[in-house]
Design a protein around this nucleic acid. Structure first.
Length: 497
DNA sequence: TATTTACTCT
């Protein structure tokens, strides 16, 4: 109780004054310290215990995981005596990885658990919710489907948590129909269930469905929250429905009393910027009720890049670098703009600054699930065991793609861009590697599903359209914010993204 | 006394 009031000192005094202390009193103290992030104190108490139970262990594991220290969490987990390693200990480890975006590790631990669980513990709802969340992030549809089967086999109830996690997994793995089926099967639905469906429609470019989902939700008496509005704004952005988006943005505070956060401004600025309404977007930033962050300015910068508004772009970059001198996107943008004008000296200065400030770009990474295994590819990756086959598949596609009308993006700019960019151009983008691997390792005609950590570039987007046509395969590519369904030379996003 | 779902830009 005193921990909840932010008074660990009082809690500790009470503990020290107790006439006798059992394992429960120790555990309470550990949980208290660990909840308020004081792992040093928690560890001291833990180390001093003569007798521990699963509660002591899981509190410690969860405490470290919450602070992002997965190494310590895992060390503790590996030290848990077999007799104490109950389902909550496993869950603390799986959810620890999930919450720290270490999705593959979460899946690995879950698979370890299944190995052991034949004799001892069985996964429960909490385990499955965490693993499903990891599957959703990884786009691991096979494992997700397996878990769906497991839920059915064990006749587990589809409560709010499990139903939402399952529905979201299907949505993020590209199966929006399945996601809706799960949603329909759920007896009880909350704001999260509805938000998942709205956001799923948005991700798949089904703006109308997202909007009708929003209104259905209101009819069912569920109040939208701030995240629901993020989903509906994203739907408008992906569909290019600017006026609708602006209306929902206004409705949010006027009708639902939700004050826009910096995230909502991010959505609206993105909405306007992608549609080319750059000065309106800039006006919004300059009149925001909360200070704009790098994300908001970054959304406007994206618009400046698409619509080649260099003057505004320069202004925006200056604001971004004030907030984050290491903002990689700004430097890349600047060097491209300078180079396109032939201002090579400025471009070179820009590269120098990047090096001085140790700017690190997030490397492009894509992954594909084949036979229950997630295969990961980075830009220009040659580390995959089947690398030779992958690259020869790509080369063999080349001439066929050109015949079908594919023109690689060899604009003048590419000669002047910085070294890293050049590497990108020379090496293969990760999504092509993943798709090529899919082509050589799956049956003819099956859909290829790839997930990418960044947005797909125009060149790869063109390439994917052509590939889908010449190999007669559907390619489903999930990028950072949405799905592209490539089929017969076309993309579901209608080239607006 | 311990563990669980949706989230803006590059």
């Amino acid at each position: 109780m005193y921990f909840k009031f932010g008074r660990p000192d009082v809690a500790r005094r009470l503990f020290d004054e107790m006439p006798q202390r059992d394992v429960v009193s120790y555990n309470t103290l550990i949980a208290g310290y660990s909840n308020c992030g004081n792992l040093a104190a928690a560890g001291e108490v833990f180390d001093g215990m003569t007798e521990r139970n699963p509660v002591s262990w899981s509190s410690m594991i969860a405490g470290h995981a919450r602070r992002g220290d997965l190494v310590s969490a895992r060390e503790l987990f590996d030290r848990v005596p077999a007799a104490d390693r109950n389902v909550v200990c496993w869950n603390a480890m799986v959810s620890g990885y999930t919450q720290n975006e270490r999705f593959s590790e979460a899946v690995k631990v879950f698979q370890m658990m299944l190995q052991e669980s034949r004799t001892s513990v069985q996964p429960n709802e909490v385990t499955l919710v965490s693993v499903l969340s990891s599957c959703a992030n990884l786009g691991a549809l096979d494992l997700g489907k397996w878990i769906d089967g497991y839920i059915k086999k064990r006749r587990m109830a589809l409560g709010l948590f499990l139903g939402n996690a399952l529905s979201d997994m299907y949505a993020k793995c590209g199966c929006i129909v399945e996601a809706k089926k799960v949603f329909d099967r759920m007896v009880e639905k909350d704001v999260i269930s509805w938000t998942i469906i709205i956001s799923a429609s948005a991700m798949h470019g089904l703006s109308e469905e997202a909007i009708s989902g929003f209104h259905d939700m209101l009819v069912h008496g569920i109040k939208p929250n701030d995240i629901t509005f993020m989903a509906i704004l994203a739907a408008c952005t992906h569909g290019g429905m600017v006026e609708d988006g602006l209306n929902y943005f206004e409705m949010m505070s006027r009708e639902f009393g939700i004050n826009p956060k910096v995230e909502h401004y991010g959505c609206v600025v993105d909405l306007l910027s992608r549609a080319g309404r750059l000065s309106e977007a800039e006006d919004i930033i300059n009149s925001m009720s909360v200070p704009p962050n790098v994300v908001v300015w970054g959304a406007l910068l994206g618009g400046c890049r698409i619509y080649k508004d260099d003057a505004r772009g320069e202004r925006v970059v200056r604001r971004i670098l004030e907030l984050d001198p290491e903002h990689a996107g700004s430097y890349v943008y600047l060097s491209t703009v300078y180079a396109s004008f032939g201002r090579l000296e400025e471009a070179a200065k820009c590269r120098l600054k990047m090096r001085e400030n140790r700017v690190v770009k997030t490397p492009g990474c894509s992954w594909i699930e084949v036979d229950n295994t997630v295969h990961e590819f980075f830009v220009g990756d040659r580390s995959h065991p089947q690398s030779d086959k992958i690259y020869s598949m790509i080369s063999s596609l080349g001439p066929r793609m050109k015949l079908a009308g594919y023109v690689p993006n060899t604009s003048v700019v590419s000669q002047f861009i910085d070294e890293e960019e050049k590497e990108d151009a020379l090496f293969m983008h990760s999504e092509r590697l993943a798709v090529a691997f899919g082509l050589i390792s799956t049956k003819e005609g099956t859909t290829i599903r790839v997930v990418k950590n960044l947005r797909v570039c125009t060149d790869c987007h063109d390439a994917m359209k052509i590939i889908s046509k010449i190999v007669e395969r559907e390619i489903v590519l999930r990028d950072r914010s949405r799905f592209h369904h490539f089929k017969e030379g076309r993309c579901s996003c209608k080239d607006y993204w």
